[in-house]
Design a protein around this nucleic acid. Structure first.
Lengths: 201, 201
DNA sequence: ACATCCTGTCACAGGTTTGTCACAAGCTTA
DNA sequence: TAAGCTTGTGACAAACCTGTGACAGGATGT
């Protein structure tokens, strides 16, 4: 849990920390991100996050909080070992910039920090808060199908949001980033499943 | 033993290897880890290690040598089956895909994730939700007879569904995947019993 | 106060998917 | 041969999904 994590970290002085974002017993102040940030502020230790698939925007928060890498649950032990080795390999000073500063896929560039997309035709548009959240989630999982529920809970959180609002949001986002919104290129619909950011093949 | 393991691996090209670390007859050069590493260096096949409880740091060595997962002896058959399914489920790359990545039987390729089949003649068709469920269940149990009731309860759940709906669904699925729906090749009917996905012999 | 933007809600259109009905063909059994 | 059962099939209707336009309330800035 949160407290003993910090204690043990100070006692053991490990080279690497694998940190589950969903720490049990985290009180109001100390969630996984806060811990990550706290540790990072005092040390250069390597930190790898464990995140549940479906909550990928935790990743963004985690990397911003100073994590070196992340692994999605469920993961294969082999994958975890590989990530650990990779993180250890790049020295502490490894200038592994947050890889998610800017998304660039298929001529679409998106900077979630300032909520701006630049299209392949040179145009630049600024997105609203919700549109940005949606696009970030989609591009983070480019090529994977995201169910309607996933998207809703990511954009609006566990409580709010419904499929009607999502449809409307998709429409508005497409109006901004698609060349021809009636024939979407980037944001693909999989009937009965959800949406996906399409990867060229 | 070590040598025949490598031989059979090359001959059989299995999808999954369950490897006991304590191989008998391992000479100085070839212990279980070396075998694991050797196989991994040449293939992406899934590897599950069997390790005796009490030597848990074998696990670390094994995972470093490229294994996907491990099972401690003594284990229950049920646990082993669960691990195998989990390993098979997540693709080779370590990405976790929930259903089996792709079924390929007798020239029929089926990706349940995106609900798409590609036929031997090169055509690809997308299936509806129910069609996909049915085909997945059939291919998962290819070569085994599935009773009408089994199929109904798998596709529609415990409550809904009846044999009429199943017949209709089978018809629609056959129309999409069979070359000649009047003479089905893949989906075979066993009068009075149910259906089966036919395996070539 | 006013205009503007963002967001949620309603209503509807078009397409697809699914359930239902009726019936034909094949096999089994009396 | 005649029921009786099972399986395959066509047609149709209901339900569902997705996209869209219009509109209203709230926030924000002038």
């Amino acid at each position: 849990d949160a407290l003993s994590t910090l204690q043990r970290w100070q006692e053991d002085q490990p080279d690497l920390i694998i940190l589950d974002i969903n720490l049990p017993g985290t009180t109001q102040l100390k969630d996984g991100f806060a811990i990550c940030q706290h540790i990072r502020s005092q040390s250069d230790v390597h930190i790898i996050l464990l995140t549940v698939r479906g909550e990928e925007n935790d990743i963004v928060r985690g990397l911003e909080a100073g994590a070196d890498d992340y692994v999605l649950k469920p993961f294969s032990p082999r994958q975890l070992v590989a990530r650990v080795q990779a993180v250890m390999r790049r020295g502490r000073s490894g200038e592994a910039a947050s890889p998610l500063a800017i998304f660039s896929i298929d001529g679409l560039h998106f900077n979630p920090k300032i909520r701006e997309v630049s299209l392949s035709n040179g145009q630049t548009k600024s997105l609203t808060s919700l549109e940005s959240r949606l696009l970030e989630y989609l591009m983070l999982n480019a090529g994977h199908i995201l169910t309607t529920d996933d998207l809703i809970s990511d954009v609006w959180g566990a409580s709010g949001g419904n499929s009607e609002m999502l449809r409307q949001l998709v429409k508005r986002l497409r109006a901004k980033i698609e060349e021809d919104p009636t024939k979407p290129f980037y944001i693909e619909n999989l009937p009965g499943l959800g949406y996906a950011f399409r990867l060229k093949r």
